[in-house]
Computed example of a mutant assay.
Amino acid sequence: MVTEGNHEVESFPVIYRELEGFIAYNARWPMPYEESGSTSNLYYSFDVVGAHIIMLGSYTNFEAESDQYKWLMTDLAGIDRTVTPWVVVLLHAPWYNSNEAHKGEGESMRKSMEELLYLARVDVVYAGHVHAYERFTRVYNNKKDPCGPVYITIGDGGNKEGLAMSFEKPSPSISEYREPSFGHGRLRILNSTHAIWAWHRNNESNSHVADEQWFESLSSSKACKLPVSRDEL
């Protein structure tokens, strides 16, 4: 299951004036977006046992009046946390990033949509784009917040551009682990309340767990009130 990145934009206004880009992406990667009520292949959601997965589009409209924003609001309001206690969001351009590479590129989307994810008590938000690894604490509006999502940048799978080596100094207080290395991550949801996240640093043929963290679902938190209607989002 995929969501688009900046390399998939492929907008050719002179040739395809009536289209919005993503010609190759939409042709080669048709996702089941209609099943989630979306009108675009660029954003959709689906369920995996115990988890509701939301794929957002960083390179299509996301303002409050956009179709994507309205769809996201409806999708979040329809989640039944007794069926899917975990809610995970994936997008391309990170909203939180202390690397000098692509700094601030996800900021406008964060300002538009972050409150929706916060009020819905999304558990984890994964992003790519920055070719390095970084894990933040639970955050809302640039501050540590026990009811906000954990933000993770996992754009270190390999690329022709090389690693994003330069992190800002000092490290911001909300950033808990960061490293400019190639690697991969694994989220293991063990039950309705607990999951374990591990980031594996890949050095040639070896895989080493360099960062590991237990997560507790916000659906089980007594301190973080879950929304009960769309009006609360």
Results as ranks from 00 to 15, higher is better:
residue 94 P to R: 08
residue 19 L to K: 15
residue 104 G to I: 06
residue 190 L to A: 08
residue 222 K to I: 10
residue 191 N to L: 04
residue 61 N to E: 12
residue 128 G to K: 04
residue 156 D to Q: 06
residue 154 I to C: 06
residue 66 S to Q: 10
residue 144 K to Q: 14
residue 3 T to L: 10
residue 42 L to Q: 11
residue 180 P to I: 06
residue 28 R to V: 14
residue 53 I to V: 12
residue 39 T to E: 14
residue 36 S to F: 09
residue 105 E to D: 09
residue 199 W to S: 02
residue 105 E to A: 00
residue 95 W to H: 12
residue 2 V to I: 14
residue 72 L to F: 01
residue 154 I to T: 15
residue 153 T to R: 08
residue 202 N to I: 12
residue 189 I to S: 00
residue 226 L to T: 02
residue 226 L to S: 04
residue 181 S to P: 06
residue 65 E to K: 14
residue 174 I to G: 04
residue 124 V to W: 08
residue 33 Y to V: 13
residue 224 C to A: 09
residue 75 D to G: 01
residue 214 W to M: 13
residue 212 E to A: 13
residue 205 S to Y: 11
residue 13 P to Q: 03
residue 54 I to M: 08
residue 85 P to K: 05
residue 232 E to G: 06
residue 161 E to I: 11
residue 177 Y to G: 07
residue 72 L to V: 06
residue 75 D to F: 07
residue 53 I to F: 10
residue 19 L to Y: 00
residue 137 T to R: 11
residue 184 H to W: 04
residue 32 P to N: 13
residue 67 D to T: 15
residue 83 V to N: 05
residue 22 F to H: 14
residue 208 H to W: 12
residue 127 A to P: 07
residue 49 V to K: 15
residue 153 T to F: 12
residue 127 A to N: 06
residue 125 V to Q: 05
residue 204 E to I: 03
residue 178 R to T: 07
residue 210 A to G: 15
residue 196 I to Q: 08
residue 114 E to H: 04
residue 210 A to Q: 11
residue 81 R to Y: 07
residue 10 E to W: 06
residue 160 K to N: 10
residue 76 L to V: 05
residue 166 S to M: 08
residue 14 V to W: 07
residue 204 E to G: 04
residue 176 E to H: 03
residue 15 I to P: 03
residue 118 Y to I: 07
residue 198 A to P: 05
residue 217 S to V: 01
residue 215 F to P: 09
residue 9 V to F: 07
residue 83 V to F: 03
residue 149 P to R: 05
residue 58 S to A: 10
residue 74 T to E: 13
residue 46 F to V: 01
residue 2 V to P: 09
residue 54 I to H: 00
residue 117 L to Y: 07
residue 92 H to E: 13
residue 21 G to K: 13
residue 81 R to S: 01
residue 13 P to L: 00
residue 57 G to H: 02
residue 189 I to R: 01
residue 63 E to C: 09
residue 185 G to C: 06
residue 154 I to S: 15
residue 73 M to K: 15
residue 93 A to I: 15
residue 155 G to D: 09
residue 69 Y to R: 03
residue 148 G to K: 04
residue 60 T to G: 09
